[in-house]
Simulated scan of single mutants.
Amino acid sequence: MARTVSLPRTARSTARRRARRTLSVLAAAWLVLSLTPPPAHAALAEVYVALGDSAAAGPLVPNQIGPDYGCLRSDRNYPHLTARAIGASTLRDVTCSGAKTTDMYESQDTELGDVAPQLDALSQNTTLVTVQIGANDVGLTDFIEDCLNLLPPPIGDACNDDYNAGGQDQWRVATDALRPRLTALVSDIRARAPQARIFVVGYATYARQNGCYPRVPIIRADANYIRATLMYFNQMLAEQAASAGAGFIDLQTPSAGHDPCASPGVRWIEPYVPAAPAAPFHPNALGMRNFATIVTTAVTGAR
């Protein structure tokens, strides 16, 4: 028969204290583990929809892609490059050369057939939207080309006087008329994509102060008028984005010095006679790469 061994009183007290300490340590460890949050899951990849006109589409920038070939859309435009940079799970790039705000809602007629309304690309699972639109509504590209002047005054005529007849600047009038349409557009984007962060993208610098005649044949007064007009237009875009609760991405400020007057390899916007594959007064591949960096920084920093 086994004998029961009785510990001395002091030994029994020490054993009980050790047992209590062990239980206390285990309880504390359990409490810490129960209060520690589980490791955060990686952020879900973006479902990115790019809306806009030729400034976003990249006409003639290699490689032009389908299925909507009439949109003159490049696979090296800033939406594509941004999507890669942020690791988007899905890119729906429906930017289209010649697009106006009406083409967000209605089919757009291109030289190679109709394309669907751009807002049709939005869905409930869209998480990111960039929209660069409005220049064609007021005819800014035609305006710049209209100011080309192969012969300076007194033989050639300045164009800015034509747009200020009666003391009213018709470009500012057209720009202000666009304000409610842009606010409504952001609201309609949000209604179709309620989870999305929305960014309105501005336009780049198309004319530097005083121009660079004759390299770009726009005389000084007209270059300054174009510059002021674009600055006012971008200011309008920023104001309407803010009033609609959207972000605004400024391309004008960082593109200063990279306008059509700059030398090849420096400029982001091609002049009337391009030296790189791009439409006149539109971004080239270098411009698209830099715009993608700017857009990527904006959309990731705003998370």
Rank of each mutant, 00 (worst) to 15 (best):
17 R>P: 03
271 P>M: 10
35 L>G: 13
139 G>F: 01
220 R>T: 14
209 Q>P: 03
151 L>C: 09
194 P>L: 08
291 F>V: 02
59 P>S: 04
40 A>L: 14
198 I>A: 07
268 W>M: 11
227 R>M: 07
290 N>T: 00
109 D>W: 10
107 S>W: 01
67 P>E: 08
117 P>D: 13
237 L>K: 11
177 A>Q: 15
101 T>M: 11
111 E>M: 07
184 A>L: 08
190 R>G: 11
254 P>Q: 00
267 R>H: 05
269 I>C: 03
263 S>P: 06
136 N>S: 11
278 A>M: 04
87 G>I: 09
47 V>R: 14
167 G>Q: 12
258 H>L: 00
275 A>D: 14
166 G>W: 12
8 P>M: 08
293 T>V: 14
79 P>D: 12
3 R>N: 10
266 V>T: 15
166 G>L: 09
155 I>F: 04
64 Q>V: 09
209 Q>L: 14
193 A>H: 04
167 G>H: 10
31 L>Y: 06
9 R>T: 12
16 R>V: 00
261 C>V: 00
208 R>F: 07
152 P>W: 05
228 A>K: 07
250 D>N: 03
6 S>N: 06
240 Q>K: 02
105 Y>T: 14
7 L>F: 08
76 R>V: 11
96 C>S: 04
137 D>C: 08
297 T>I: 06
134 G>V: 02
